[in-house]
Amino acid sequence: MKKTLHMVAVLMVLGFISGFSLVRMEEYAAPRIEAHRREAVEASIYAIFPKGKSYKVLELGGREIFEVFGSSRSPIGYAFTGKGKGYQDDIVVMIGLYPALTRLAGIEILRSVETPGLGGEIVKPFFKNQFQNLSASEPIRYIVGRAPASDSEIQAITGATVTSRSLVRILNGEIEAVAKLLRQK
């Protein structure tokens, strides 16, 4: 009985010390972690909207949409994140729409663990820039084997069809959902 009590007591003491140290560590780390997260989001917003100077967070339909402002009072665009399964794992992308909701301002890849040299190329400017000014009125299509003909088509990456297809699928889904929310506003 005394032995069991001793065992329990030792474990409880260890538990308390552990809990206490972790609480203090969390107090130290939490604000910093939040700051980093916000920096990453902001960096991607301003990469899509180079003229952007500030943004407001809109909560619509359960998601966060960033209303981006430049030097004037009216918004220069909207930014929101989209997530979906790529080839290896999830892809997280920041999408930018111009205020008319008919054209894309661009995209930034926030998270991608696709194959380096193939699907991993979606983070490179040559691929991302295709989305600047792309039409958002109809679903985006990825093209293989010939050059894009209309302004809602982009060139897929050779050898990375799955990644390209997944990204386009994510974009179409998110754009449609967010555009609907914004039109209702």
Partner: peptide
């Protein structure tokens, strides 16, 4: 956990 939080921060 201490190391993980320190790294994230």
């Amino acid at each position: 956990t201490v190391a993980e939080l320190f790294l994230a921060a």
